[in-house]
């Protein structure tokens, strides 16, 4: 059986974890980050296809 200390710890961790996620959701522009990810992926693919391109920059 869980002790009071275990229950208190679990409740604290759950509250803090949920609050942290809420703060991040408010701060992160996911669509912008996704567009940036695809831009980076395309750029790396171009660098991989054309190795001289990365070192020339």
């Amino acid at each position: 059986m869980e002790s009071n200390a275990d229950i208190t710890l679990d409740q604290l961790l759950q509250r803090a974890s949920a609050s942290l996620l809420t703060s991040l959701e408010a701060a992160v522009d996911v669509e912008q980050a996704l567009a940036e990810l695809h831009r980076q992926a395309t750029e790396r693919q171009a660098d991989a296809n054309e190795p001289g391109r990365a070192s020339a920059r």
């Binding site: 974890s17 942290l20 992160v28 669509e31 996704l34 992926a41 395309t42």
Partner: peptide, 26 residues
Amino acid sequence: EFEFATLERTDSFDDYYRSDLTTLTR
């Protein structure tokens, strides 16, 4: 490791990204 064979944009990846980015950051 970087394998670029799968880099074309996929809707399923985009959906996964949207659902997991903030939890991965956390």
